[in-house]
Design a protein around this nucleic acid. Structure first.
Lengths: 139, 139
DNA sequence: GTGGCTGCAAAGCCTTTGCAGACAT
DNA sequence: ATGTCTGCAAAGGCTTTGCAGCCAC
């Protein structure tokens, strides 16, 4: 994603544009996996040698509150972050604890249709995410 | 669940039968929500005034390794535990952070059939769990 | 110029670990 | 009898908080 789009995202969320925030969002959007705060800080070390881990934490929290990113948690106890906002699902690799994104439009349609017909009494669904646990067979 | 069944579960997992372990499993199985270690300890205070929080943690970890219970995590950063072993799903109430179980055999069948036909390349699925986020409308 | 943001350090909280005594088998 | 388990306390790791100086606006 190009820097101007990121700037625009921050601006429309009512946040000041700082180099750190732009860089943190950039890292998250380019990330293959769902990084922890520490991983984000690590990847910023080249461009921002002086960046503070505390700032990364607070920035991620801020972005999360503004709904620009999401928090993700698995059973390893560390908080991870996700810049994807479209409906998607997660593949948990049991051995390594890694989480990959899983996009499946056909599945989304099945789920939407299912819950359109059969709603859960008294519960208003905002989001559905599949957590698919398993392991890679050959690699 | 009656105490003899719990004893049997522990025995077949190769664990020694101690009053603490039986009580912890009992609490988890009777729990309406998914308790944290602290909540479990709290509920045990009546019957085991001297029980240690550390013991609760280590016991829950042991039970989890023996697959008698599962770890559950949401975005509040606390580890929670679940004694349900059948396939089921979770309703996250956004406001309160509470997690309720959601059983739906019809949905399970749809998911099983879907992934039987359309497998994910190179990925061997062990478990599928829906995390349904939303809020209760009227209560 | 002003309010918000960063960096740093300290504190906080949840969880794990180490060890001595106690217990289940 | 012995190997495991409990309780306690200390340590550990991740995250939050407080504050002074700095920066975007």
């Amino acid at each position: 994603m190009i820097s101007e789009e990121i700037t625009e995202m921050l601006k429309s969320a009512g946040l000041k544009i700082t180099p750190q925030r732009v860089a943190i969002l950039q890292v998250l959007m380019d990330a293959d996996i769902h990084p922890t705060a520490e991983i984000v800080a690590e990847r910023l070390k080249n461009d921002f040698p002086g960046i503070s881990l505390g700032t990364v934490y607070t920035t991620l929290e801020t972005l999360s509150q503004k709904k620009l990113i999401c928090k993700v948690q698995v059973d390893d106890g560390k908080l991870r972050f996700d810049a994807k906002t479209e409906m998607h699902h997660h593949l948990h690799e049991i051995d390594t604890g890694k989480i990959a994104d899983y996009f499946d439009e056909e599945l989304n349609n099945i789920l939407k249709q299912y819950f359109a017909e059969k709603s859960i009494p008294g519960f208003d669904i905002k989001d559905i995410k599949l957590h698919i646990k398993g392991e890679y067979t050959n690699k």
